[in-house]
Write a protein that binds this DNA or RNA. Structure first.
Length: 155
DNA sequence: GCCAACGTTGGC
DNA sequence: GCCAACGTTGGC
């Protein structure tokens, strides 16, 4: 049974269109520096899990497509790269501290689903993304929520 | 181990 | 740009 997730990205730094241009439409999800998000990637994400791709700090903020996990949690080497924006002096190859997964694009929605629209959907009432103050950049999504989002994208 | 100060996220 | 809602840090 696959699990379901939502990944946030600021399109100014990495958009779903950028993902479409990657070799094999695949990228490593590096740079996450939050323990809860790391734990999901390191411990719970499995190959074949499905992903909703969300554009934060965008106009409008919206779920813009889907992807899947193609490689399970492994060390994030940007953590010990001094020139990387997400450099962490406490991380090293011996003690990686941060993890990432690889994702591959499945689909870019013809029409993005903005937050405003998602808030109107009864099936998504409890979705973590829509909770006030929700900041987690890697979130679990229920099967029901994932399917409700897909249904919206096709309507 | 508490908690105030600080830094960050992210919608608006 | 504002600011609410976080998460992290570090003094004690």
């Amino acid at each position: 049974m696959p699990k379901y997730w939502l990944l946030k990205s600021e399109p100014e730094s990495f958009s779903i269109q950028d993902l479409a241009r990657c070799p094999k439409k695949t990228t490593s999800w590096s740079g996450v520096r939050n323990y809860q998000a790391r734990n999901y990637m390191r411990d719970e994400m499995k190959t074949g899990d499905r992903v909703l791709f969300y554009h934060s700090s965008a106009d409008p903020t919206a779920i813009v497509g889907t992807a899947k996990i193609v490689k399970e949690g492994y060390p994030d080497p940007t953590a010990w790269d001094k020139n990387d924006d997400h450099y962490d002096p406490a991380a090293s190859p011996e003690n990686p501290r941060w993890s990432m997964v690889d994702i591959q694009l499945d689909e870019i929605f013809k029409t993005p689903l903005p937050l405003e629209q998602l808030r109107k959907v009864a099936a998504l009432k409890k979705m973590e993304l829509l909770r006030k103050g929700s900041r987690l950049s890697v979130q679990p999504v229920t099967k029901e929520e994932f399917e409700a989002v897909l249904k919206l994208a096709r309507s």
